[in-house]
Structure formats: structure tokens, C-alpha cells
């Protein structure tokens, strides 16, 4: 029974990691651009969720508004800063987004202070659910369902829509896609904003479960980066399996080897990279 409960906990973490890593991964596959400030967007999703929930006295207002606000913030960030560093070396791009982590960290401290906040879960999911004779928080099941729903939506969007086909073509071979008349830059912008919105969604969805405080972004960013590396950048499948692996390994690691909880994840990553240096399901050939 403990095993099943832990399994659900692992799936819940995996769902959050998926929301966070899928944007990171597909943007990397498309543009070889890794946004280390992705975790910062997650944190702002959570904080904006807290603010919206307070303003409208409703979880659902926060749930829908915060991701939109974060996506808008991502669009602004792209327009003001990131667009202009597209031609810089990958190292400079990474460093700039690394600097943004510092800025975001202190902006959160300036605006919200250093003490943790949280959002009350919505009334519908406030209680517990009987599963296998155990009471499990309904909200956590909702998180798992949310992860699955987003995954299904992204899968359909990527496989069945025109813009999805453009994204796949861009990940596959950027130059070829450009030669075929696809505006790769615009596709990138769209995917980037979508990724930011999903990071914001992950943030607000996490707010009832995790404390919201300055610096909450780093642990989850690290996990999301590990997901991208383990899963292989650029593919939905990679983000999905990577999230599952990392989510479950982290959860079970804490139960089985509490002293070395952190190490299980890194051991997993190291093992995967030894066997497959570009991750389990790399969609993008890494040069």
C-alpha cells in the first residue's frame, strides 16, 4: 500500500516535471537554446497564482490567469532580450538566462518577501479519496490528471495540426524547414510562449502542494534539466518518459535511501548518459 501511495506521489511529481520540462525540451530541440530562467517562470507562476487567488478569491481564476500572465511575461522577455541574443554564442545565451535567475530571485524577494505563501486547493479537490483502503489527497490526483491531459493535448497538437507539423519539421531539420518556407523564428516564438505558459501552469498548480518562496525555482529547475537530459531534448516522448523516470526515482529514492535521496537522481542521470549521451529519445540530432 505504501508502495501505491508512493507511486501516486511519484506520478504527481512527474506530472509537474512534465509541464515544466516539455517547453524547455522542445525549445531546445527547435533552437538549441536553453532557458535557465524557466524555473524562474515556474516560481512567478506560483506567485502570480497566489496574487490572483487572493484578488479573485478563487483558485480557478488563478489557475487560468497565472499561466496567461507568465506566457505574456515570456513574450515580453523574448521581445526585449532573448530575440537580440539569438545570434550570440550558446554560451552567452545560457549565461544571460542564468543572470535572469538572479534577477528573478531578488524580484520575488522584493515583491513578496522571504516568507512562504501557499494557495488553498479548490473546494472540489479539497478532500481525500479512498484508494486501495487509503485516503489520498484528491488535489494530487488532479495534478496527475492535469499532466496527462496536457500531454494528450500537446500530442494531438503536435501530430494533428499545421503548426505542430511545423514544429516537428523545425526540430527535425531547422535549415530544411526554413527552406520549405516555414517561418522558424515565429514557430519558435510560439513554442517559447507556450512553454512559458506551461511553466506558469506548473507553478500555480504546484502552489497548493509546495511552499511558494524565493528560491523555490532552483530544485525544480534542476530536476527539469535532468528530465531534458535523460529524456533526450526535443521530443514529447523524451519529456514524458524523462519526467516519469525522474519523478518516480526521486520519490522512491527518498523512501528507500533517505540519506542519499538527491544522489539517486544524479546516479540515474549519469547511468543514462553513460549509455546514451544524448538521452533516451533524442529527437534533435545534437551537433
Amino acid at each position: 500500500m505504501v508502495f501505491l501511495i508512493q507511486l501516486l506521489n511519484g506520478l504527481q511529481l512527474a506530472a509537474l516535471l512534465f509541464l515544466l520540462s516539455v517547453g524547455l525540451s522542445v525549445v531546445f530541440g527547435l533552437m538549441r537554446f536553453i532557458n535557465l530562467a524557466h524555473g524562474t517562470l515556474f516560481m512567478f507562476g506560483a506567485y502570480l497564482g497566489v496574487a490572483c487567488a487572493a484578488a479573485f478569491d478563487s483558485f480557478w481564476a488563478a489557475f487560468f490567469l497565472a499561466p496567461l500572465l507568465v506566457a505574456a511575461g515570456g513574450a515580453a522577455l523574448y521581445g526585449i532580450l532573448l530575440r537580440h541574443i539569438r545570434r550570440k554564442s550558446p554560451m552567452q545565451q545560457v549565461l544571460v538566462t542564468f543572470g535572469l535567475i538572479f534577477i528573478g530571485f531578488d524580484v520575488a524577494r522584493m515583491v513578496w518577501g522571504r516568507f512562504p505563501y501557499s494557495i488553498a486547493e479548490p473546494a472540489v479537490f479539497a478532500g481525500g479519496v479512498q484508494i486501495f483502503g487509503q485516503v489520498y489527497p484528491a488535489y494530487r490526483l488532479f495534478l496527475i490528471a492535469l499532466g496527462i491531459a496536457v500531454m494528450a493535448a500537446l500530442y494531438l497538437g503536435l501530430e494533428k495540426t499545421r503548426i505542430g507539423a511545423m514544429v516537428r519539421a523545425g526540430v527535425d531539420n531547422r535549415r530544411m524547414a526554413a527552406a520549405l518556407g516555414i517561418n522558424v523564428e515565429r514557430v519558435f516564438f510560439f513554442v517559447f510562449c507556450l512553454g512559458c505558459g506551461l511553466a506558469g501552469l506548473a507553478g500555480v498548480a504546484a502552489a497548493p502542494v509546495f511552499p511558494v518562496f524565493p528560491g523555490m525555482d532552483m530544485p525544480i529547475l534542476i530536476l527539469a534539466l535532468i528530465v531534458v537530459v535523460v529524456g533526450g531534448p526535443g521530443s514529447l516522448k523524451g519529456a514524458m518518459f524523462g519526467s516519469l523516470l525522474v519523478g518516480l526515482a526521486d520519490t522512491f529514492g527518498q523512501v528507500v535511501f533517505p540519506e542519499f535521496a538527491a544522489a539517486t537522481i544524479y546516479a540515474l542521470m549519469a547511468a543514462v548518459l553513460m549509455v546514451r549521451p544524448t538521452g533516451l529519445f533524442p529527437a534533435a540530432t545534437v551537433h
Binding site: R32, V94, V286
Partner: peptide
Amino acid sequence: FAVRLGGVFFIMMTLAIGQMVYAFFLNS
């Protein structure tokens, strides 16, 4: 582990190494 990874992967690996050591001492 780190040096056989190229570019951005190397950077992410070093970030992970740093956090791993931090977590190790935090729990020791």
C-alpha cells in the same frame, strides 16, 4: 561524466553536480 557531454549538456551537468554536492552536505 561531464566532459563527454557537449555544449549545453555540459553546463547542465555541472549545475546538477553542484546541486548534488549541496544536497549531500545538506543531508549529511
